[in-house]
Every structure is written in structure tokens, then in C-alpha cells.
Amino acid sequence: MYKRAQARSVQEVFVRLCLSRLKSWIFHEHDVVSIDSQLMDRLSHELRTSLTGIVGYSEFVESTSAEPMVNFTAKMIRESSQNLARTSNSFFDLYRLEHRRMRVECSVFSISTLVTEVVRLNQKFALERDVNLFSTCSRDTYLSHMNSDAQKVRQVIDAIVFAAVQSAAAGQSVHVDVSIDENKRFMKLVFISFNPLSSSSQNQLFKDFWHNKSYQFSLQEGPGIELALAKKMIYFLRGQVEYLSLSNKSSNLIVKLPINSYDQSWCFI
């Protein structure tokens, strides 16, 4: 009897000790994660602030200088800073996704307005590269709304449109078609690039995007990290992605995103 009580007391002491160690370990881990996250937020803010200063001043010089060489230099600085800003934004978003710190904040928004806006914002870039960028939208979709995270949906579309335009050759087209399925459960976005498969780097780009499970974008310079993020974001939003190639006709990337997946805001933590 005495021995049994003694054993129980030893067990209790042991369990308490384990619990206290576990508790201190959990708190320590929590502190480390919290410091890490704060550092990343701070870094993200500092980088973005500095880059907006560079872009802002180079645009100012571009718009005010009459010297062609000064204009050209300012343009190069601006474009390079904008690329760096996109890459760093994607890096920090990937970090948040990987560490399950990405939040979904839902709101109701017009599908066609969002798609048109993203295409409009990429028009200047398409024009510079002599790429014909356009979007189409069915009548039903034109009037439809989506209840999802507008910022992330926009980010996905923007990353794919940007990459498609960047990899298209001069004189080619990129077409974004938006529709909704019969059951009104998914928004279907089809990114079509009219580029022959045999010679197109665009096809490789979409293939990379489709097959890639990590971030190994070996062939494509520039948009890799953004596309990796876009793909992760599609799955994060519980969407689907498909790749379809029509030989010697076009490369299609089909993205389906739920129209109404979330009843309220939520987050992974």
C-alpha cells in the first residue's frame, strides 16, 4: 500500500516536471516565433518604405527632366526598384504562407471590376513590351459578386497576368477570360497566351507553374517567386489550377477560385 502510494507520488512529480518543461518549451517557442514574425514585419515595412522612396523620386526625375540620358537612367532605376519591390513582397507573403501566418479577410466584391482593374494596371507594362493584353467577361459574370479575400484574389490574377505578359514575345497576345460555373460555386479564370508551343518560353513558364511543387523555377528569370506564391495562394484560397495546351495554338492556364467559401474571416495560427 505504502509502496503503491510512493510510486504514485513519484509518477505525479514526474508528470508535473514534464508538464512544466513542456510549458516552458512552448512559451519559449512562442516567443521565438513571435520575435521572428515581428522582425519579418519590420523588415518588410523598411524595405517597402525605402523602395517607394526610390520609385517615387525616379518617377519625379523622369517626369521633370528634359535630358534623354537622365530620363533613361531614371526609368532603369524605377523599373529595377519596382521589380525588387514585387519580389520582396512575394518573398514576405511566401514566408507568411509557409509559417501559417497568412490571414484571409473576406469581403463582397464585383468579379468583373476586379479582373478589369488588374488588367488595366498591367496595360502599361504590356504596351511597353508590345503585347496585346485584354480581358473578356460573360454577361452573367459581369453582374456577379464574390465573397472572398479581394486582395489575395487580385494578387493571384496580377502575378499570372504579369508573368504571362513578361514572357510573351512582342506582337503576341495575352487574353484573360473570366466566367462562373453553372452552379455558381467557382469563378473560372482562363489565362490564354497565343503562342506556338514549339518555340514558346511562355509554354515553359506555364508548365513550370503547373508541375512545380516547390520554387524551382530554373528557366524563367523574374516571375518565378511570384508564380510560386500565386500557386500557393490558389490552394490556400481552396481553389484549383489546371494547365491545358493546344498544340500550335495556345497555352491556357485555368484557375478556379470558390465564389463563396468563407462565412467569416479566419486565419491559420
Binding site: T49, S50, T52, G53, I54, G56, Y57, F60
Partner: peptide, 11 residues
């Protein structure tokens, strides 16, 4: 941020 603070007045 000094740079972002000065830009509006420069413009």
C-alpha cells in the same frame, strides 16, 4: 521616412 516626407514638397 525622410525621403517619402520630402517628395510631395519637391513635386
Amino acid at each position: 521616412n525622410l525621403i517619402n516626407r520630402m517628395l510631395p514638397s519637391h513635386i
